[in-house]
Design a protein around this nucleic acid. Sequence first.
DNA 1: TTGTTTTCTTAACCTAGTTCAAGGTTTTAG
DNA 2: CTAAAACCTTGAACTAGGTTAAGAAAACAA
Lengths: 195, 195
Amino acid sequence: MNTELILKNVSKHITLNDAERQFFLSMLESRFIKRKELHLKEGEVCKHSTFIVSGALKGFTIDKQGIEHVINFAIKDWWIGDMYSLISQQPGILNIEALADSEVLMLSRENQHLLYEKVPKFERFFRIIVENSLVASQQRLINNLSLTAEERYLEFMKKYSSILEYAPLHTIASYLGITPEFLSKIRGRMARKPA
Amino acid sequence: MNTELILKNVSKHITLNDAERQFFLSMLESRFIKRKELHLKEGEVCKHSTFIVSGALKGFTIDKQGIEHVINFAIKDWWIGDMYSLISQQPGILNIEALADSEVLMLSRENQHLLYEKVPKFERFFRIIVENSLVASQQRLINNLSLTAEERYLEFMKKYSSILEYAPLHTIASYLGITPEFLSKIRGRMARKPA
DNA sequence: TTGTTTTCTTAACCTAGTTCAAGGTTTTAG
DNA sequence: CTAAAACCTTGAACTAGGTTAAGAAAACAA
């Protein structure tokens, strides 16, 4: 189990002593996910918060017309999960799939609650993680409401360039809220008369 | 200061003893906001989390073309604030304005941190509040990506009917991500051939 | 009470983005 | 190495929703 990265991630917001660190690590479960493998399937109850050690995943829903909508990406050093299902313990609507072979560390809901009991600092840690997710989610909403598709694509490349290595065009189009054909057209336009 | 509602709100997630309750209440500041009055202006640093005792507020941004985008509403028993500015202490992009005469209770960032020190349970309380906001924000993203304007309007009426009493049509249109003219058209259509 | 502002509607025309279809290229699995 | 699958591009026809404009109705301030 490769724990260096997650310990560094935690230490960004809280400080652990040796015993706490050991206890935290004992709560984690390592897993390797192959490219295209589903880590979480809609309809299931989400039982873990997942930290990405290497690789990349996408979270997505499928609407009534069978169209896939990418809700978020997660790469090295990020957390992912179906927050709705995780807190309500109801069947979720999120699918989580690997974009590349990935190593993740999983913290089960029960262990997370144990952690809150034994090391209350983790309440703070996850509060901050969730706060940051909320800011990102709201910023994306604002972008979707106020920018054109082309502007959103430029923003995306600026902010998440590392994801371009993992996600094919139609997945990025889905994240941006447009069709793959239209993203292709935008690219063509940009290549012809660049910024 | 009308504290009954906020104490009930807090008690949904954590239990306070008398001293803790008194301490919490001593951290709050009451404010009355007139309809159309700005509670927070973009460019300012957001210094408070705000709990609504009565009335209704909207949070919105204004894009380069001067168009207003409603990010969220807040009514009785909800919290509102510019999370980005609140945690980064950078100038924010959110405006918060009263839709009706409102009474709010404000918890300053400093007091919130004091509260975290003195009564660590509040880390949990605000973690849960933020988790719920994140779920709502993601659900809205999913709706924006996968539903038509008419479907979003129907969803909105089902879920937030109480806001219809406070917000004029053009404000709801902005929240839905469409123009007031188009929402008016949808209404006309729905009136002619109802569900 | 009356002028002013805000709100809502309707209609004609316009456009960003979609749909459908087809062909070409790259990646992958066996 | 090769067939199949996944991926990307382009173009023509289409549509959900936007823009502009103008008028009616309601709410509000003086």
